[in-house]
């Protein structure tokens, strides 16, 4: 364990920026001078832009691994010559001050996108190119529920370096070799001070076991829950583990007799009516009830069963972002209660 000051950390970041893209929490001004701000992970040009004291960014950092839009490859045809350009992302990235829940989100994405064949080469490459510098939360923030879902505000399992804020600076813990390598150049002193243990008290949110979900599939509850859903994509886009995308080819003329094709991949959302529409116009998930239910089943039933990972890390962003107050913790509580009632009723019949 090492001890360093914020100034030394800042100097180290500034030096890092010379050779890698440093992505860190940054305050973004909204609406001109209207005074509203958003905190977002963004590439920074100087440590002066980095916000060290924060709760949670508005968006998860997944966009630096699975960008909202990326070019998968380009094909150019000129007369009889065809060239294919498939450039995997090469930039070295450092993600500074990632929260343990977001890092855990990346572990979930790894399970889905890398450990499962076929692996997503673009995502995998960005994961390899990126070093994660975690920043422990001293406690759970409003809307947070990581502890209910197997995480912890000071969980260092999924980062390369972990920072803990302490009196007089930060404790630096090297978790992986990649992390140790990145730390070269940080001015810090060795210390035997133990890492502070964060306050883990948080809401008790019962999470139903994956195999208990199918019995609830046809309950009226889902229709009632989705009554207020607007079917916007906000919850899925802020989520650290939602990873659905759409792919499309864009063609344009390139010189005389030439043609240029670009294959784009962009985020897509299961909340969109058109998401599940198939050829001929049929839609197996025609209403917002079907879509909202699917989102939760995906997280707590399908993903755990198919990929061994609950696709929720308790970051609370979907709760904070929902314009109509849909709350995933409330849903989990109600679903658990519903399951208990059904079980009770089943026993009565038996």
């Amino acid at each position: 364990m090492k001890l360093t000051s914020r100034e030394q950390l800042a100097a180290w970041l500034d030096a890092l920026m010379e050779r890698a893209t440093v992505i860190a929490p940054r305050q973004v001004e909204c609406g001109g001078g209207s005074g509203t701000h958003l905190l977002l992970y963004q590439p920074v040009a100087s440590s002066a832009e980095v916000v060290f004291d924060f709760q949670r960014t508005a968006m998860s950092p997944k966009g630096y691994f699975l960008p909202s839009t990326e070019v998968l490859f380009e094909i150019e045809k000129r007369s009889n010559e065809v060239t294919l350009d498939e450039a995997l992302p090469q930039d070295e990235q450092v993600l500074f001050a990632i929260r343990p829940c977001d890092a855990r989100g990346l572990r979930v994405l790894d399970a889905l996108l890398v450990e499962h064949e076929p692996a997503d080469a673009y995502y995998a490459q960005r994961r390899r190119n990126t070093t994660l510098v975690g920043l422990a939360c001293p406690h759970l923030w409003p809307e947070c529920f990581c502890t209910a879902i197997g995480g912890a505000p000071d969980d260092s399992a999924d980062v390369d370096i972990m920072l803990y804020e302490v009196d007089g600076g930060y404790l630096v813990s090297e978790i992986t070799e990649k992390g140790t390598a990145l730390l070269a150049g940080l001015n810090a002193e060795e210390t035997d001070q133990p890492a502070p243990v964060s306050d883990r008290s948080g809401p008790s949110v019962p999470v139903l076991a994956p195999e208990a979900w199918p019995a609830l599939f046809n309950e009226l509850y889902w229709a009632r829950l989705s009554d207020r859903c607007l079917s916007c994509h906000a919850c899925t886009y802020v989520c650290p583990t939602c990873r659905c995308f759409d792919v499309r080819d864009y063609t344009r003329a390139a010189g005389p007799n030439g043609i240029h094709i670009e294959r784009l991949r962009s985020w897509d959302s299961c909340m969109a009516a058109a998401y599940r529409r198939i050829a001929g116009g049929h839609n197996p998930r025609p209403s917002k009830m079907h879509r909202l239910r699917n989102r939760y089943y995906c997280k707590f039933n399908y993903c755990p069963q198919d990929f061994g990972a609950v696709a929720c890390v308790g970051c609370g962003r979907c709760i904070a972002v929902c314009p109509v107050g849909i709350d995933i913790t409330e849903m989990l509580g109600e679903v658990a209660a519903l399951a208990a009632t059904l079980e009770e009723r089943g026993k009565g019949k038996g």
Binding site: G32, S68, L230, C232, H233, Y237, S269, A272, P323
Partner: peptide, 28 residues
């Protein structure tokens, strides 16, 4: 301002006046 947009369509979905069966933004 537009660059911050994430195309979540929350604006459109919250708007009573936006009720097209298929929005021009999603038309294929």
């Amino acid at each position: 301002e537009f660059d911050r947009c994430i195309r979540c369509y929350a604006c459109r979905q919250a708007c009573p006046g936006c009720y097209c069966f298929e929005c021009m933004a999603e038309q294929v």
